[in-house]
Amino acid sequence: MTMLVGLLASTGLRSGEALRLDRADVDLVDGVLHIRRTKFRKESPGHAGGATNYSRHRDAAFPTPKDVAFFLRSRRNRLSKTGLNVVFRAACNLARLNSDKALVAK
């Protein structure tokens, strides 16, 4: 979750763009993201800072993922918008921040 929120904050990606990332979209060697299906239907590069550490932890926790998603949930498949909202609100509550507004637009 830390990696995902940091990625959203540092790159300006929309949550849906980040959630659609597949492993092949993240170049860990050069630190570049390949962003597909953006709001204006263009593909663009982004910065993948911190992705190597997240990937290492993710792969240790989920050595046999169910799909090619970069961000996984505990069931080893792609994290959904709903799942991101639930985790984000829980993190806001722990930090005693106002989480009245959803992180992910419907």
Rank of each mutant, 00 (worst) to 15 (best):
T2C: 10
M3R: 08
M3G: 01
V5S: 08
V5L: 15
G6M: 05
G6L: 04
L8H: 05
L8S: 03
L8R: 04
A9L: 13
S10H: 11
T11D: 04
G12T: 00
L13W: 08
R14L: 02
R14P: 12
G16N: 12
G16P: 10
G16S: 11
G16D: 10
G16K: 10
L21G: 00
L21Q: 03
A24I: 00
D25L: 07
V26G: 01
V26D: 01
D27M: 09
L28H: 02
L28G: 00
L28K: 04
V29Y: 07
V29T: 13
G31Y: 12
V32P: 10
V32D: 04
L33Y: 03
H34V: 07
I35A: 00
I35Q: 02
I35G: 00
R36Y: 07
R37D: 14
R37I: 03
T38P: 00
T38H: 00
T38W: 00
K39A: 04
F40C: 08
R41D: 14
R41P: 08
K42W: 03
K42T: 12
E43V: 02
S44I: 07
P45R: 10
G46S: 09
G46R: 04
H47P: 01
H47V: 14
A48R: 02
G49V: 06
G50S: 05
A51F: 13
N53V: 15
N53D: 15
R56W: 00
D59K: 12
F62G: 13
F62W: 11
K66D: 13
K66T: 10
D67A: 13
D67I: 11
A69S: 14
F70W: 12
F71L: 10
L72P: 05
R73N: 15
R73K: 15
S74N: 14
R75I: 03
R75H: 15
R75K: 14
N77A: 11
N77M: 07
N77S: 14
R78Y: 08
R78H: 10
L79Y: 08
L79W: 05
S80Y: 11
K81G: 13
T82A: 09
T82P: 09
T82C: 07
N85Q: 09
V86N: 08
F88G: 00
F88P: 03
R89C: 04
R89W: 06
C92P: 02
N93W: 07
N93Q: 15
N93K: 13
L94W: 15
L94V: 15
A95E: 07
R96C: 05
L97K: 12
L97V: 12
N98T: 06
S99Y: 15
K101H: 05
L103Q: 02
V104Q: 00
A105C: 09
K106Y: 06
